[in-house]
Amino acid sequence: MEPIRKHTGIVYPMNRANVDTDQIIPKQFLKRISRQGFGEFVFYNWRYDSKGELREDFPMNQPKYEGTSILVAGENFGCGSSREHAPWALLDYGFRVIIAPSYADIFYNNCTKNGILPVQLSEKQIQELMERAEAENYELTVDLESKRIFDNQGFEASFDLDEYKRQMLLNGWDDISITLGYEEDITKYEEQRS
């Protein structure tokens, strides 16, 4: 996966709690057998009308948010299905960072396997970011090395991330190669058990 160290981008505010992976990528798009090309279907049922036309009244479709790469959302983001198509779709659309008060476990994990940085901030901090991003074309910088988030208007916050996951994201490591380095341990474990 592509490493992520420091990222600056336009914020898209999604002021909803419990956004589930069925919303992020509806099931009719799960039949493909590759990891690519899911971006155009992200939040499909909200972004498109029943005829398949882009809905102009859905904020994400507005020019103001074109090129957005930082998604700010409500609590329990990514709940529901384990489908990794959800982070694939977000990444393919252009999101590299998600900021929310809390995440569903499987989704959170899936993000870190795909080079998406899931940041956890407080409800109050999220509200502040939502308000700014709703009002204007709002740019934010997320620095994974120093675990800090800031804009050029005085907002600043620090965040925490499991150190192992942080190293994986910073370096873009493939954890299968790392685990295969433990092959002797795995074989030993199998022998002891049989």
Binding site: S82, E84, N114, Y164, I176, L180, Y182
Partner: peptide
């Protein structure tokens, strides 16, 4: 017993383990 994403499916197929 727990659900995993596709990257982890690949990881378990290759190593029979999970972090």
């Amino acid at each position: 017993a727990f659900g995993i994403g596709t990257s982890e499916v690949e990881h378990v197929l290759a190593t029979q383990t999970i972090w």
